[in-house]
Design a protein around this nucleic acid. Structure first.
Length: 568
DNA sequence: GCCGTTTTCGGCCCGACTGTTTTCAGTCG
C-alpha cells in the first residue's frame, strides 16, 4: 500500500477513536483529523518524502497532525493512536458500523451495560436491556436489533459498484419522469459525481404545485406514485427521494449532489459574504440571492460552474475562483475508438462488419480493431487469422471511406513485460494496445516493471485497462503509479481510460493523482465486444472528467492527422 | 485541531428525522 494510503488509514482510525473519546462525530478535533486524512489521501506527492514543514504546508494539516504523521512514518506507530486503541478495541469500535449507533450510544452501552462488541450488543437487545437506558427506548432497541441482523446488507459502509447502480437509477429516473405532475427528475449524490462505488441512490424530483395548498392532493398523489416507482429498487439498494419546488432545483441539486466536503466549503464561502447556503437557496437574511439553478449559485459565489464530477473539495473551488478549472473532455470531443473487438476474438459478440458499421454510424472519424492476441489461448488470433482479418479490413475500408480503420491488436503483457508475436510481425500492425490479463497477484515491484517493459516495446502505443480491476469482483494489480507515469511520459505511451462500467480503469483516484502531469497522454476507449457497447464511451468520459483529465491530453479527441502523427 | 479580506483567539455548515423528551440529544446525510 502507498505510504499516503497507510497514513490516511491511520488518521481515519484516529477519527473513529476520537469520536468515541470526544463523544461526538462533530467535534472539532475529529473533523480536523478527518480533513487531514482526506488531504493526505489526495496528495499527489509521496507523503513519506515530506519533512515537518512540508507536511504543515498541506491545507488541513497543522502542527499536531504533522508531528503525528512523521512519528508514524518513522516508527510505524502513533502514540495517541495506540493509547486510544487500547482504550477502544477494534471489536468495540465496530459497533459504530451499526446504523443508529453513534459515539454517544456506544459509550453509554459500555458504561451502563458493559457491552464491548456487536455480539454482546445483539445479546443485550435480545434480553431487552437497551430500553432501560437513559435516552434509549423500546423503539431504538428494536431498530438496533434489526440493523444488526441486516448488517452487511445495510451497514453504514456498504457500497455497490456503479454499474448495477446506474442501471437501477436510470430506470428510476425514467419511471419517475413519466409520473403525472413531475416536471423534472435527476439522480444526484455520488452517482452524479461518478464515484465508482455507491452507497445509495439520491433522486431529486420537481413536482408542479408541490408548494401550493390548493394542489396538496395532487402533490400527495405524486409522492405516492414516486414511492411506488422506487419500491422495487429499494429491495437492492437504499433509495432517497426528495421532492422540491421548481425554484429550488438548483440549490437542492447542489445540496443533494454533494460531496459533503464540497458543500461545507461552499457554505463557508457563503458565510464569508454574510449569506447562508442550504438546500432551499443561497440566502441573504430572508432574501433569496440564488436558488433556481446550480449555475446561478456558483455565479453568485464568484465561482465558475463546477461540474459534478469535480465536487470533492480537492481544489476545485479554489480553481473555480481563479478561473483555472481544467478544460474537461466531453462525449462530443471523442473522434475515435481505439480498443474494439469483434467475433474474430473468441469473446466478441458482434461481427467485424457490424462493429465497423456501428462505428461509422456513430460518426466516428477513426477506430482501431484490436482483437485479442495469440497468447490468450481461448480468445486470441493466430498469425494466420491476423492476416485473414487484415484482408477483410482492406475490403471494409473501401466501403467506409469516411472512417479510418486501423488494424491493431490487444496484446497480452506476460509476467516479464513481454507481449505476443515477434517484432517483425508486430510491425505489421497499425496500433498496439497492451494489457494485463493474467498474473494479477505479483508484487507491486514486479507489476510495475512488467508494465514499464511493455511501454518500452515500440509496438505498444497504449496500456489497456491499467490495473485490471473488476469493480466489486477483483481489486486490480498493485503498482507504483508514479513510476508508471514517468515511463508513460518517457516512452510516449498513452494510458487507456477503459469505459466499461465494470472496469473504469485507470481509476479516477489515480487520474486525480496525475492531474498535474501534462506530459502524460490518455486514450478513452470502449473495449467494445458488441455494437451496443460503443455507447459506453460516455462512462469513460465521465471517469476521465472525475480524474481532472484535460481534453488536450486525450489523443482520440485529436483530428485524425494529429492522432496519426502522434501514434507514428 | 486548524486557521486568518472578521480573527494569532475564537470561531468552526446546515437541516431533517427519530425518539425521547416537557425543550432536546443523537444520528444521519
Amino acid at each position: 500500500m502507498r505510504a499516503n494510503d497507510q497514513v490516511a488509514a491511520a488518521l481515519a482510525k484516529l477519527v473513529l477513536l476520537t469520536q468515541l473519546e470526544d463523544g461526538s462525530a462533530q467535534s472539532f478535533r475529529t473533523r480536523a483529523y478527518d480533513r487531514a486524512a482526506n488531504a493526505i489521501r489526495a496528495l499527489p506527492e509521496d507523503v513519506s518524502t515530506l519533512d515537518l514543514a512540508e507536511l504543515r504546508a498541506i491545507d488541513g494539516v497543522g502542527d499536531s497532525t504533522a508531528k503525528k504523521i512523521r512519528e508514524y512514518l518513522e516508527t510505524g506507530h502513533m502514540k495517541s493512536l495506540d493509547e486510544l486503541s487500547a482504550k477502544y478495541p477494534d471489536e468495540f469500535v465496530a459497533m459504530l458500523r451499526v446504523p443508529g449507533v453513534g459515539p454517544r450510544t456506544a459509550i453509554t452501552l459500555r458504561d451502563k451495560l458493559g457491552i464491548e462488541s456487536i455480539d454482546q450488543l445483539r445479546e443485550a437487545v435480545a434480553a431487552e436491556q437497551l430500553r432501560e437506558l437513559p435516552g434509549l427506548g423500546a423503539k431504538t432497541e428494536e431498530k438496533i436489533g434489526t440493523a444488526i441482523d441486516k448488517l452487511g446488507l445495510a451497514g453504514k459502509d456498504r457500497r455497490m459498484p456503479i454499474g448495477p447502480t446506474l442501471r437501477i437509477a436510470n430506470g428510476l429516473v425514467e419511471d419517475i419522469g413519466a409520473i403525472d405532475g413531475v416536471s423534472a427528475v435527476r439522480y444526484c449524490g455520488s452517482l452524479r459525481r461518478f464515484r465508482d462505488s455507491i452507497a445509495d441512490i439520491d433522486v431529486l424530483v420537481v413536482a408542479d404545485g408541490a408548494d401550493e395548498a390548493v394542489d396538496a392532493d395532487e402533490a400527495a398523489g405524486v409522492d405516492e406514485a414516486v414511492d411506488a416507482a422506487v419500491a422495487d429498487a429499494r429491495e437492492s439498494i437504499q433509495v432517497d427521494v426528495r421532492v422540491v419546488e421548481p425554484d429550488q432545483w438548483g440549490s437542492a441539486s447542489l445540496y443533494f449532489t454533494g460531496s459533503k466536503e464540497h458543500n461545507i466549503a461552499l457554505r463557508q464561502r457563503a458565510l464569508a459574504r454574510g449569506w447562508m447556503l442550504n438546500e432551499y437557496g443561497l440566502m441573504d437574511e430572508d432574501t433569496v440571492v440564488a436558488s433556481a439553478t446550480e449555475e446561478d449559485i456558483y455565479r453568485a459565489l464568484d465561482l465558475d460552474f463546477i461540474p459534478p464530477e469535480l465536487r470533492e473539495d480537492l481544489g476545485e473551488i479554489e480553481a473555480a475562483a481563479e478561473g483555472n478549472l481544467p478544460d474537461l473532455v466531453d462525449v462530443d470531443d471523442i473522434r475515435g475508438d481505439l480498443h474494439v473487438h469483434s467475433t474474430w476474438s473468441g469473446d466478441g459478440r458482434s461481427s467485424l462488419e457490424d462493429m465497423v458499421a456501428a462505428a461509422a454510424g456513430r460518426g466516428l472519424d477513426y477506430i482501431a480493431i484490436t482483437e485479442h492476441a495469440e497468447d490468450l489461448s481461448i480468445n486470441g488470433l493466430s498469425r494466420d487469422q491476423v492476416a485473414e482479418e487484415r484482408a477483410v479490413l482492406d475490403e471494409l475500408r473501401g466501403r467506409y471511406p469516411e472512417l479510418a480503420i486501423l488494424h491493431g491488436s490487444e496484446l497480452n503483457i506476460d509476467p516479464d513485460g513481454g507481449v505476443d508475436y515477434d517484432a517483425a510481425f508486430l510491425a505489421g500492425f497499425d496500433w498496439g494496445v497492451a494489457s494485463v490479463h493474467s498474473h494479477f497477484d505479483l508484487p507491486a515491484e514486479k507489476q510495475t516493471q512488467r508494465i514499464i517493459t511493455a511501454m518500452e516495446n515500440p509496438a505498444v502505443s497504449v496500456i489497456g485497462h491499467l490495473t485490471g480491476r473488476k469493480l466489486g469482483r477483483r481489486p486490480g494489480i498493485e503498482l507504483d503509479f508514479d513510476a508508471v507515469l514517468d515511463a508513460a511520459a518517457a516512452t510516449n505511451t498513452a494510458l487507456e481510460i477503459n469505459s466499461h462500467l465494470a472496469r473504469l480503469d485507470v481509476p479516477a483516484d489515480l487520474l486525480i493523482r496525475a492531474r498535474d502531469r501534462d506530459d502524460v497522454r490518455y486514450t478513452i476507449s470502449t473495449d467494445s465486444h458488441d455494437v451496443t457497447e460503443f455507447a459506453n464511451i460516455r462512462w469513460g468520459v465521465q471517469n476521465a472528467r472525475r480524474g481532472w483529465v484535460q481534453r488536450s491530453q486525450v489523443v482520440n479527441t485529436w483530428p485524425l492527422a494529429d492522432f496519426l502523427a502522434w501514434a507514428g
